[in-house]
Amino acid sequence: MVDVGMTLEMVEASQMGMKAIGAALAVGLTGIASGIAEMTVGSAAVGATAENRDVFGLVLLLTVIPETIVIFGLVVALLLLF
């Protein structure tokens, strides 16, 4: 990426831009993955709760477990940026 004609400022700006794109991808893609996982778990959770209300607390916990994926993505993004 570094062109012979580029100044130091331009290189630094480019590196910063790449980091920002990496961070965005880390959060964005893991967010989508969490969404898909939660869709599946959530549908089953609603089905189970419709039949037996006592399991609501348990299935709520199970539904948010895929959130860890996006949290990992967020951590990676923060590490990239700071």
């Binding site: 869709m39 599946t40 959530g42 549908s43 089953a44 089905g47 039949e51 037996n52």
Partner: peptide
Amino acid sequence: LTTNYIYACTRMRVRRSR
């Protein structure tokens, strides 16, 4: 339709367990 299928099939499984 995936979510609808998961929802219905889970309900059937819960009913079966009863």
